[in-house]
């Protein structure tokens, strides 16, 4: 098998054989298969190539460290701002979970901060996004992943958009009913924000109404109280948190609830991205 020019492995059978020009398509679980495959590949490396790989690895590691340092510096901009920056939320959350066996199972569309700031070393620490960018995916998909994590005792966290949350909020009842521990943070930017951005871009391109992109894309008047919604489904809910200095204590309380085996929702009023 290792003599093949290209190997493509993916759990989603619908992607099998599509688009990739490879010698061998395998439908399989990368998490289960990769450790064996990696060991096979290591055994096939001669000394000359090993030295080249080591040198390349050192360069990549240095570049990664520089990227993380830049991300940390970027994260300080607007640190004390309200609405809370997404960078602060991600930094505060990671600071409290990094020593746990954590698993990030969902993020709001376009939220890039965790992958810039956090150290992902295990396959289950990130399970991807909706394939088609579908709105409404994050809450139910996160709960499915939380169910899978439950028997391993992992600390499951997700950060989902408020617009996304509006589609299947009854997922919270399922979480309460089956006692599935998960910290669900509502990235509350009070909008279907991806739509807002596209509308604004198109309005600017066509030279019209660039100040009207909030029509039909924002969630205000009235504002939604997501913590109360959660409580209505029997889930611990707290928020809206808009004071950045109140964020860390609120995260601590919610994480304690999750570690006790229960789902928890934290509504954080955050900047858009």
């Amino acid at each position: 098998m290792l003599g093949t020019r290209g190997l493509y492995m993916k759990a989603n059978y619908q992607d099998l054989g599509r688009y990739q020009d490879v010698d061998l398509d395998i439908s399989g679980d990368a998490e289960a298969s990769l450790p064996i495959l990696i060991e096979q590949v290591k055994r096939g490396i001669d000394e000359g190539r090993k030295a080249a790989f080591d040198a390349r690895g050192k360069k990549l590691a240095a570049a990664k460290l520089a990227t993380v340092e830049q991300a940390k510096l970027d994260a300080t901009i607007g640190w004390d701002a309200s609405p809370i920056t997404t960078a602060r939320l991600c930094a505060e959350l990671y600071s409290q979970i990094k020593d746990e066996d954590w698993s990030l199972v969902g993020t709001s569309i376009g939220l890039a901060r965790p992958h810039r700031l956090w150290n992902f070393t295990k396959p289950y620490q990130w399970n991807g996004l909706a394939g088609g960018g579908g709105v409404g995916y994050t809450l139910p998909a996160s709960l499915g992943a939380a169910l899978a994590n439950k028997r391993h005792g992992r600390l499951t966290v997700a950060i989902g958009g408020d617009g996304d949350f509006m589609f299947v909020p009854s997922t919270l009842w399922t979480a309460a009913h089956h006692q599935i521990p998960m910290l669900y943070i509502v990235h509350n930017n009070r909008a279907y924000h991806q739509e807002y951005m596209y509308l604004q871009a198109m309005a600017a391109r066509l030279g019209r109404g660039i100040t009207n992109a909030d029509i039909g894309t924002t969630i205000k008047d009235p504002l939604v109280d997501y913590a109360t919604v959660a409580k209505g489904f029997g889930v611990y809910g707290e928020g809206p948190v808009s004071d950045p200095n109140a964020l860390a204590p609120a995260l601590k309380r919610a994480i304690a609830m999750v570690k006790s085996g229960q789902p928890a929702l934290l509504d954080v009023v955050m900047d858009q991205r």
Partner: peptide
Amino acid sequence: ECHGRAGQGGRF
């Protein structure tokens, strides 16, 4: 909407 209220940057 894309660059943040504090000018901190973000993502589209």
